[in-house]
Design a protein around this nucleic acid. Structure first.
Lengths: 344, 344
DNA sequence: TTGTATGCGTTATCAC
DNA sequence: GTGATAACGCATACAA
């Protein structure tokens, strides 16, 4: 299929006996253009199937109207929702998105960052990979004054804007709830403590135990990679433990669902023998039986807020360098998997 | 933050007392360049933090190396997997992606198509919205010879390349399996028959019934929008039906999971009283109890194949106008929700 | 309200 | 193996 020639503003200008400048202005809704002229131009543009050339325009304007998004994965409900939120706001503000995901690998994350840098994105939104240990691969953006805003998995102590929930409070609420349900020996299944989200939730767990006078036991902490296999293994270890835990706070709903199944297959009743609380409020919370008590992690809202902040900054309406950290509300959602007391 | 000046090939050329042409060639691994010259150039480029300007390059080269992806939604496992497959292949081939989703609305789909057209994507990958009734909004691509390749939700009878599974066979296999399990009255919960995937699955269902001498009853067909609420409503209607169905083939796993719960809450045993087969092989199949029998719909593979075909076409390695339809293998996966016979 | 002139950064063509 | 030059399509400063 041979490429037909593209229509340019020059073609329109020539046919209408105008200058390209006038055509350009008319197409951009420039105020100082005669209404009639403008109509002639837009009509002809339509008729000829004109489409503006973004590359020429961007080259000239020296900006890209593009935001780069770096995610550690795409498979969780939370991430999809967050992405949907980002996309919604970006689209409304007429920004394009370049989405890159690191598959939980720092190396890929760095490559993606470099790629986005070369693509000259106007700003970056990022959630860090499992094994990312520093932010040096984002330094080029800093140097050029390109804003980077982190969410979900962030370095809380580092410079830079971030949007997060209070993960410590989440862990605290989940654990307190289990204690209030009468649990005395509460295990915690989590993931790499290099990631703020997991480390903070653990802190919340510890804090709740301390506050309620429940002894903390390091043997009750299981650090796994959150895959199905690892979840089954962790559940089996908990089953073997003596005395056996009577409650588990699990940092991820999918993992929690798998654990509940594994417990049930071993003849252990949930919540009667072991109460379970998850994290995220994924759809599977309502599919698993008993339904899963969890901490709501509102992806859509977070995505929208991240994107809105970045875009406001880009448009000079605010400055994210002033608002270092934004904390989004997230609350405990109680369902059957943890209800020992009010069990019918 | 004031924009510092960007380094261009001219800056490098000047400092090295070379021409911009040479610098451009060196940076592009052009063969006819002195190795030493090249090293000097790449070193200095690195040192100065040079980044090539895609817009200038694309403007000059007259192509965008970008593929537009139009999806009807982003929430299903299948779509995410398909997107991951597309992204993998595109990234490997150095194509960017612009992802647009229509939220199941034809209007948004048309707007997205127009937007991608103006962005001058080199090619398009699309899965149609719920209420899309024709492909006229893709006509501009046709006219310009920009390839469009459809997958999942397509118009099977229309012109154009498509990648699909044999949905009719899926419906047939699911239904035959239920009949073989001893079901005599099999209901079918599905969605808008304007969509090929649902219409074809229904055909397969009808075919299986006919072949096995089971009477087809239109009252057993529930056409819903696949939301949680609609699924619950459909399940409740089935519960009230007399004689009550003893098997249900449901066109979507999430919907099937909700139905199973609704049945169980009404005291109906699955699979003993009613056997259930879903469609997609979503993760929830293994979370719901009993585990859900389903038809595997391999998103990752489909995404990869769609993207590979499009890119091969773009690179002139093949021509999708010759291979009209590609059918991907998909098979029945038997789990507990349908096993009446071998029930322990 | 419109036109003129120029430059954005690259790459392709041709010349040497 | 390298250089000079033009062209890609648009937006804007300045002039009229």
């Amino acid at each position: 299929m041979s490429r037909e020639k593209e229509i340019t503003i020059y073609d329109i200008a020539r046919q209408l006996d105008l200058s390209a400048a006038t055509v350009s202005r008319a197409l951009k809704d420039h105020p100082a253009i005669n209404k009639i002229t403008k109509k002639r131009i837009t009509d002809l543009a339509e008729k000829l199937g004109y489409r503006s050339n973004n590359f020429a325009s961007n080259l000239r304007k020296q900006n890209t109207n593009t935001i780069g998004v770096i995610l550690h994965e795409l498979r969780s409900q939370f991430m999809i929702s967050a992405l949907a939120g980002i996309e919604k706001i970006a689209t409304e503000a007429n920004y394009d998105l370049i989405i890159a995901h690191s598959s939980e690998s720092w190396k890929k994350e760095a490559a993606n960052a470099l790629n986005l840098f070369h693509k000259r994105v106007d700003g970056v939104i990022a959630s860090l990979a499992f094994d990312t240990e520093n932010l040096s691969h984002f330094a080029p953006f800093e140097r050029k004054g390109i804003p980077v805003i982190y969410f979900d998995r962030v370095f809380e102590e580092a410079e830079g804007a971030k949007v997060i929930i209070n993960n410590q409070k989440g862990g605290y609420d989940a654990t307190t709830h289990l204690i209030e349900q009468g649990c005395k020996r509460i295990a915690h299944i989590t993931a790499s403590l290099n990631r703020n989200v997991y480390a903070e939730r653990l802190k919340g767990y510890q804090l709740a135990l301390a506050e309620k006078g429940v002894k903390y036991n390091e043997k009750m902490i299981y650090i796994i990679d959150l895959t199905e296999e690892a979840s089954i293994r962790a559940a089996k270890e908990i089953i073997k433990m003596r005395p056996r835990p009577d409650g588990i706070f699990i940092t991820n709903d999918f993992c929690a669902a798998v654990c509940i199944q594994t417990l049930q297959e071993a003849g252990i009743r949930v919540p009667e023998d072991i109460a379970v609380v998850g994290f995220n409020n994924d759809v599977i919370c309502k599919i698993i039986e008993p339904k899963l008590t969890t901490i709501n992690y509102p992806g859509l809202e977070i995505g929208e807020i991240v994107a809105r902040n970045l875009i406001n900054h880009l448009q000079g309406k605010s400055n994210i360098r002033l608002t270092n950290t934004i904390i989004i509300k997230s609350e405990l959602i109680i369902r059957g998997s943890s209800l020992k007391k009010t069990k019918k």
